[in-house]
């Protein structure tokens, strides 16, 4: 009888202290939890909801239109151009960033002198305001007084109005995009190179693979494979999110030659005020990002399971 009473008391006190810990947990995490809900989860759900309506920003009424926004999106010439341009842009930026980043990383790592200097120089664009630098690029690419045309004219290369020509605008944007992301890829590759154990090189030496190219083929590149996949995804994500350079340098022009996903999202939602339509673009953008993130998770998982 007495023992029974005791155990009842014990259980109560246990619930109370468990409660105390839960209370502490929610007090500490509560503000963040509420804010994540208010600023991420609910807006995310709202985007999905708005994408199924014909709402115009500021309008008092809206109606449910189902997947109509998506069907008309894919019928829309401008959106298809945006999708196509983004794909082309990504396909130009990503390979060039990866190849250049890897080559420069190998080159920097192949010697001892000035490593930190070269790393810093190539990394600089990644952390400067792309808005400010886009203005500088505009000056560089200016048809008459820009450095690019001046130099090209001097050495006899063809000059152009780079940002106003349908043929050159996307490649030029891709060059600027590569210029900005290069430093990130470089630094990630450098970290990957540092992580290769010297033992592997020693083993390759003993096995007779002692030439520069042999070492590269037998040890370096295979060891870098996981990092490379990783860089691929990070750089791709950034390329898909290109906005500043379009907004400042081309506003999607000439024609629709440089409209990209985020710019289309911005224009539909905030300039044309066709909000439901803009939200549908946001949903498509989100789907792309999530697909890439899932790929990234799989890469990371396979990497950790391997090591």
């Amino acid at each position: 009888m007495k023992a029974q009473q005791a155990s009842v008391v014990d259980r109560r006190s246990r619930v109370e202290t468990g409660f105390a810990e839960t209370l502490a947990g929610y007090t500490l995490a509560g503000p963040a939890l509420v804010l994540i809900f208010a600023l991420f989860i609910l807006p995310g759900a709202a985007v999905l909801a708005i994408a199924t309506t014909d709402w115009h920003l500021g309008a008092k009424t809206l109606s449910f239109v189902g997947a109509a926004n998506f069907t008309s999106l894919f019928a829309d010439r401008v959106f298809r151009a945006a999708l196509f341009n983004t794909a082309v842009y990504v396909l130009m930026v990503v390979p060039s960033t990866l190849v250049l980043g890897l080559s420069l990383a190998l080159l920097i790592e192949s010697g001892k002198s000035l490593r930190a200097f070269y790393r810093a120089v190539h990394f600089l664009p990644f952390m400067t305001s792309l808005a400010a630098m886009a203005i500088v690029w505009e000056a560089l690419l200016h048809p008459t007084i820009g450095l690019v045309n001046q130099v090209f004219g001097l050495i006899g290369l063809p000059t152009a109005n780079w940002l106003r020509s349908e043929a050159t605008v996307l490649p030029i944007l891709a060059i600027i995009g590569t210029w900005q992301s290069l430093g990130l890829a470089l630094v990630l590759f450098l970290a990957g190179l540092k992580a290769i154990p010297q033992d592997l090189y020693d083993a390759a030496d003993i096995d007779g693979a002692d030439g520069v190219l042999d070492r590269l083929r037998v040890v370096t590149l295979p060891s870098l494979a996981p990092v490379s996949l990783f860089v691929l995804i990070v750089v791709t994500l950034r390329a898909f999110a290109a906005f500043d350079i379009v907004q400042i340098l081309t506003r999607g022009g000439p024609g629709d030659a440089s409209v990209m996903l985020l710019y289309a999202l911005y224009r539909e939602s905030f300039e044309y005020l066709t909000t439901g339509y803009g939200a549908a673009i946001a949903v498509i953008f989100l789907v792309i990002v999530i697909a890439l993130a899932m790929l990234q998770t799989r890469v990371v998982n396979s990497r950790t399971s391997r090591s």
């Binding site: 994540i36 600023l39 991420f40 989860i41 609910l42 807006p43 995310g44 709202a46 985007v47 708005i50 999110a241 906005f243 985020l262 999202l265 911005y266 939602s269 909000t275 803009g278 939200a279 946001a282 949903v283 953008f285 989100l286 990002v289 999530i290 993130a293």
Partner: peptide, 13 residues
């Protein structure tokens, strides 16, 4: 989930 969602997607709401 919050980590996954790019900020531009949430701009409108």
């Amino acid at each position: 989930i919050g980590l996954l969602i790019p900020h531009q997607v949430l701009a409108l709401p």
